[in-house]
């Protein structure tokens, strides 16, 4: 039972980090990123490939993945962030799918659909295998605390104030001398770096990665977590991640009580999440921890 709880918290922690990146982009800057998972894949694959084949120290490989994802985020943002919001959505979802197909087909590098395994994990020689998950949970939660505090610090700073003003009204921000475009690129790059970090952690946790780990649905899991907890609310993201993965894993037990095949239960689970979101939108559209007032303040 403890093992089970540790597993849920691990995956929830990793997805909380992943969703915090998205929340920075969407919740605080208003950027529609539908390809967040692409940056997660960049983090996971970069870290694994560098540390496995080239013996690069793990910390350095994780940082390399983050830097690469940040650069890719800026690279995608530069042509699209001057356009209307929906263009970013189109370009990012396209990017994440193109990347996934590259990972599937460039077998010389990524081992294609079979994926990669047998790569090093942090402190694997020091921690006994039976308690590794528990140890890794501590690592994930520590990273989560650092990322959470870092983002909270940033959004409460004048930098974050500019982001929020862009979310509200770009014209006002511009009229006050703020370089709106530059802030959007920064937000997207930083959010992508955080996604890459989550990707590296996911790889360490799974011990085995393949392109199927990075399907577009993962991006929307992050969206569900953000919307569930309340857009623009980092505490809500933490709560959303725990609730989402708690339900997602817990519903596995429903198998015993339902006259359905595992595939059917899997589909039921997704349907139920959809239903829950619809009900949430009807009765608490601001999310669980979102502020009601903010919704009634639209122009």
């Amino acid at each position: 039972m403890i093992d089970y709880l540790v597993t849920i918290l691990l995956i929830a922690g990793i997805y909380a980090i992943f969703a915090l990146g998205l929340n920075l982009e969407w919740g605080f800057t208003g950027l529609l990123n539908f390809g967040h998972v692409g940056f997660m894949a960049v983090g996971a694959y970069t870290t694994v490939l560098l540390s496995m084949n080239n013996g690069v120290p793990l910390l350095l490989s994780v940082l390399a993945g983050m830097v690469l994802a940040g650069l890719l985020g800026a690279f995608l943002g530069i042509p699209t962030l001057k356009l209307r919001a929906d263009y970013l959505a189109i370009v990012t979802i396209g990017f994440s799918e193109i990347l996934r197909y590259l990972l599937l087909n460039e077998e010389w590098l990524t081992n294609g659909p079979i994926g990669l395994c047998g790569f090093p994990r942090p402190f694997q020689d020091l921690v006994p295998i039976q308690s590794y998950n528990l140890f890794f949970l501590v690592v994930v939660l520590s990273v989560l605390v650092i990322i959470y505090s870092g983002i909270e610090l940033l959004i409460r700073s004048p930098w974050g104030r500019v982001l929020k003003s862009i979310r509200e009204n770009e014209e006002i921000a511009t009229s006050l001398g703020k370089h709106v475009f530059s802030y959007k690129v920064q937000s997207l790059a930083l959010g992508s770096m955080i996604a890459a970090l989550a990707g590296s952690l996911l790889a360490f946790y799974l011990q085995y990665i393949n392109p199927r780990n990075f399907m577009p649905i993962e991006t929307f899991y992050a969206w569900i977590i953000v919307v569930l907890g309340g857009s623009g609310n980092n505490k809500g993201v933490l709560l959303g991640a725990v609730l989402f993965w708690g339900f997602f894993s817990g519903s596995r037990f429903a198998q015993e009580y339902l006259p359905l095949s595992p595939t059917q239960v899997g589909s039921m689970r997704v349907m139920f999440i959809g239903l829950m979101l619809i009900i949430l939108m009807m009765f608490r559209p601001q999310g669980i921890l979102g502020k009601k007032e903010e919704l009634s303040l639209e122009r």
Partner: peptide, 25 residues
């Protein structure tokens, strides 16, 4: 900027604030 407080609206005003650079924060 409706979802920001009146004070936050005001504090957005000053140009080239140190804290508007991410590194300085």
């Amino acid at each position: 900027l409706n979802k920001m407080t009146v004070l936050e609206n005001m504090m957005l005003g000053p140009q080239l604030q140190r804290g508007e650079k991410i590194w300085n924060v």
